[in-house]
């Protein structure tokens, strides 16, 4: 019988979080000693029937009160700063990440690789690479929880959330849905399979469907008729998309937004929400006509238009 205490540590973030945990365990143990040792001593020494000096003490009460107000506050603030700094590391992916899309649905995880590979309830990644997940849900809220990497993030319908990790050990790790999502919530689990670079390349090639994600997006872009307005000679009627991704977009109401995944998603589903400066809204909504998978394909395609721009 084994009594594991820590889940596997498979990233630097995991070590960072465990250190914070041990820091808090130490201070908690210290507080317990400071409270419980005197308490038990008092219970013994001043128990009824046991002779002891019970005359009212003249301790400097106000000073004691101030001391045990200020001291915990200072200690708490140290842990606040520690926790917040570590949190920034968890929330902000370092540059140079490989991007993978995740779609949660009752009760499975669908994964899209940029190379076009797709998997369900499994996520193959190469060791040592920074992996950034762009996630959404096609029904209720889910949560992509990776205990070995000490990270999790809610997967919310109607928006994109991101999560990143960098596995530093080859192996297979748990993936759990940790936001309650209905009947089979406890079976909405999977595996993250961390492979060596070579094995990962082999896995990619083996399952290669022939079209990359962006290529699928390009095909959709034509089939849905987007190209009619947004590409070629007709860019007078609709804002051009070349070089758009990641750039600031001035809007008709005077505000400026960054053209990220969420912006493109909203522009497809709710075109009237944010209208590019100088244009009128002639675009129909594609809500109900494109699936979450297809939206991510379109976004992947629009991203490549960005990189092709001069």
């Amino acid at each position: 019988m084994t009594f594991p205490i820590l889940p596997e540590q498979a990233s630097k973030i995991a070590t960072q979080t465990d250190n914070l945990c041990w820091g808090l365990v130490s201070i908690s143990a210290a507080v317990c000693l400071i409270v419980f040792v005197p308490m038990i001593y008092f219970l013994f020494k001043y128990r009824n029937g046991h002779p002891a000096d019970r005359s009212p003490s003249n301790l400097p009460q106000t000073r004691i009160e101030i001391a045990w107000t200020i001291l915990p506050l200072l200690i708490f603030m140290c842990f606040y700063v520690w926790g917040a700094k570590a949190y920034f590391n968890i929330e902000r992916p370092p540059p140079g990440a490989m991007e993978i899309n995740v779609i949660g649905k009752q009760w499975m995880w669908k994964v899209q690789h940029p190379e076009g590979n797709r998997e369900i309830d499994e996520l193959h990644v190469p060791v040592g690479r920074i992996v950034k997940l762009t996630m959404t849900s096609q029904d209720v809220i889910h949560d992509f929880f990776l205990p070995a990497f000490r990270t999790k993030q809610d997967v919310v319908p109607g928006r994109y959330t991101t999560e990143w990790f960098q596995a530093d050990k080859i192996g297979t790790y748990h993936l759990f849905c940790s936001e309650y999502c209905g009947t089979s919530h406890s079976h909405m689990e999977g595996r993250v399979i961390v492979l060596s670079q070579a094995d990962y390349q082999a896995w990619l090639t083996e399952g290669q469907p022939g079209t990359t994600l962006a290529e699928s997006g390009e095909r959709l872009f034509r089939e849905l008729g987007c190209s009619g307005c947004h590409l070629g000679q007709s860019v007078i009627r609709a804002p051009p998309l070349q070089g758009l991704f990641g750039k600031p977009v001035p809007l008709n109401d005077g505000t400026v937004v960054i053209a990220d995944e969420g912006y493109i998603r909203d522009s497809i589903l709710l075109p009237a929400k944010q209208i590019t400066g100088g244009y009128t809204n002639d675009m129909p909504s594609f809500a109900g006509r494109v699936s979450e998978d297809e939206l991510l394909e379109l976004i992947a395609y629009i991203k490549t238009l960005g990189s092709q721009s001069p």
């Binding site: 960072q16 979080t17 914070l20 945990c21 808090l24 201070i27 908690s28 507080v31 317990c32 409270v35 419980f36 308490m39 708490f76 842990f79 606040y80 520690w82 926790g83 917040a84 700094k85 570590a86 949190y87 590391n89 968890i90 949560d143 929880f145 205990p147 000490r150 990270t151 999790k152 940790s178 936001e179």
Partner: peptide
């Protein structure tokens, strides 16, 4: 007092942002 102290101290774990990411919903 004993149980509340332990419960309160573990509240400090959950208030620490980075740690909360790992243990929330568990």
């Amino acid at each position: 007092i004993g149980l509340f102290t332990v419960g309160g101290l573990t509240g400090l774990f959950l208030a620490a942002l980075a740690l909360d990411v790992h243990v929330t919903d568990t």
